[in-house]
Amino acid sequence: MSTTTTTAVTPESILLRRDDDGVTTLTLNRPQQFNSLSFEMLEALIAAVDEIARDESVRVIVLAGEGKAFCAGHDLKEMRGNHTLEFQQRLFRLCGKFMMKLTELPQPVIARVHSIATAAGCQLVSMCDLAVAADTARFAVSGINVGLFCATPGVGLSRNMGRKEAFEMLVTGEFIDAAEAQRRGLVNRVVPLEQLDAEVARLAASIVAKSPLAIRMGKQMFYKQLEMGLDGAYQLASETMACNAMCEDAAEGIDAFIAKRKPEFKGR
């Protein structure tokens, strides 16, 4: 039986949380500000993912946006209203901290992109483990249009697509559509808007059906090996597979495969 609960993460409800049978959806809820990543929003997101990281009942996280935009980046009015180096440093360090937490979470994170994702919003898509976009979605790192090079979004962008493709977006600020974003590796799947929720649900369900222990171990290894040399990466991967093979879930999965039955994973 499906059980769904929706709660406001913050008193002002700028971030909503919905739990539904192992899938937790966090929805940016500043539609009038195009879900911009204000200081308060970033703090709410960090608090939410820290809580989710400790919750073994959560198997997949979906990041979504309310209203006309997925996320339009940082709150430029807030940035101009706090025009000191100290505030800018605090803001971008906080944003970087949140982006890193997405990769450090034990659960896979899926971006549900229904519309525009610009600047830090495009960065947010790039730092999620997976992304499903509606064919109406568009992507840009448009800070350059107001004299601000999107340096931090460039970190995630350059780790998703080719260097020249990423740099072109950074220096032109031009939009790409969902199909082009998929071709460049920024998103995994593109579907018509009316099919977006169903496609996100299909992807999440596919992950929920797998061993939670194997997913946790695999995600941690995946990001570590990306920053290593080839030999070190293979050593880490080999050790991870050996340890994973000794786990109860792996034994159950192999036994189920041999017996031609569905495995019953326990996360051990």
Rank of each mutant, 00 (worst) to 15 (best):
T5C: 06
T10I: 04
D20W: 00
V23I: 15
L28E: 02
F34M: 12
L37N: 02
L45R: 03
I46K: 12
I46L: 13
E56I: 07
S57G: 08
R59N: 07
A69K: 01
F70G: 03
H74T: 11
L76C: 04
H83R: 11
H83T: 05
T84D: 08
F87V: 05
Q88E: 14
Q89M: 06
K97I: 11
M100H: 10
L102D: 05
H114G: 15
T118A: 09
G121R: 00
L124I: 10
T136F: 00
A137D: 00
A137F: 04
I144M: 09
N145R: 12
A151G: 02
L157K: 07
G162Y: 10
R163Y: 08
R163P: 08
E165H: 07
A166K: 05
F167K: 01
M169S: 02
V171C: 02
V171T: 15
A178F: 00
E180W: 00
R189C: 02
V190R: 05
P192K: 06
Q195L: 12
Q195H: 13
A201D: 13
A205G: 15
A209Q: 12
S211W: 10
S211N: 04
F222W: 08
F222D: 05
Y223H: 11
L230N: 08
L236S: 07
M241Y: 10
A245D: 15
C247T: 15
E248C: 03
A251P: 00
E252F: 00
G253H: 07
K266L: 06
